[in-house]
Design a protein around this nucleic acid. Structure first.
Lengths: 144, 144
DNA sequence: CAGTATCCTCGAGGATACTG
DNA sequence: CAGTATCCTCGAGGATACTG
């Protein structure tokens, strides 16, 4: 039904993993270095059964992994995998948009580059000329 | 309850607008220049009542606007506002992630820079040194 | 064409109690 | 601490019929 199933699928596939509010918020908390079940639950105010299902799904989808930090009793933390870390632009772009358009006087959260302390920004750029490209100048590249 | 309400709000605010699957898919279709109700419905395979609610919400949130393209009977198209266009990085980063991690043999959708035809990429970079920054090197900037 | 009006179902979300 | 087990409710999603 969609005009081009294949490119719809790229977005849909991403949404299967982080398409619901809680998954995204859990992920965001992990980026903020909150790794343990109870810490996540307390931080997010999420019901424990829901947290369990989100963590399982995120692990199943390969964006989080369980890492044991204690034996007897066994205890695990949830850490980002490489695939999970690759979701950073999604989080950053969402946050940037929220700050820009929904701020309503709230102080925006500014993220800084650890090396030099300057703010970071999320942009779409040309791989060749490195110029930032805005939406109107993006075309679909025909691959076939 | 969250450790830092203000930065959680930036993400939550963005999710209020595009936090559900259909809103995001509708928006994506509009980026692909599908502007009319019936075209959107057919393209997405969405029930008309749902499409109505999504379009209303997107208009309410200021990311789409109704533009009349015909009188008698009045007919409207849904166009991106500036705020809507600013969501482009969110879409691009989601697509990029889906392509990279969920492809499973599907040909990825490559987006090209209209000016030079080269592929585009979404990155997070330092506003000062312009170096791409990855998740591990992002810190929160204290504003107070 | 661009919706509105109904109706139905299923499952997500939330609260709460319990467990190794 | 890190979950599992239940139970309940409400509303999102989908199908379908209708309308200016």
């Amino acid at each position: 039904m969609p005009s081009d199933p294949s490119d719809n699928d790229s977005i849909s596939a991403a949404l299967d993993v982080i398409g619901d509010r809680w998954s995204l918020l859990v992920l965001r908390a992990v980026f903020r270095r909150i790794y343990r079940f109870s810490d996540l639950r307390d931080d997010l105010g999420i019901a424990s059964n829901l947290l369990t299902t989100r963590l399982c799904r995120l692990v199943d989808h390969g964006v989080l992994e369980k890492v044991r930090y204690q034996e007897r009793p066994e205890r695990f933390e949830y850490r980002l995998t490489d695939a999970g870390r690759d979701l950073s632009p999604v989080l950053v772009s969402l946050m940037q948009w929220g700050d820009a358009h929904r701020g309503d006087g709230e102080a925006p959260t500014v993220l800084a580059h650890a090396d030099c302390g300057e703010p970071v920004e999320n942009i779409t750029r040309c791989t060749s000329c490195h110029t930032p490209v805005d939406a109107a100048d993006i075309r679909k590249l025909e691959t076939t």
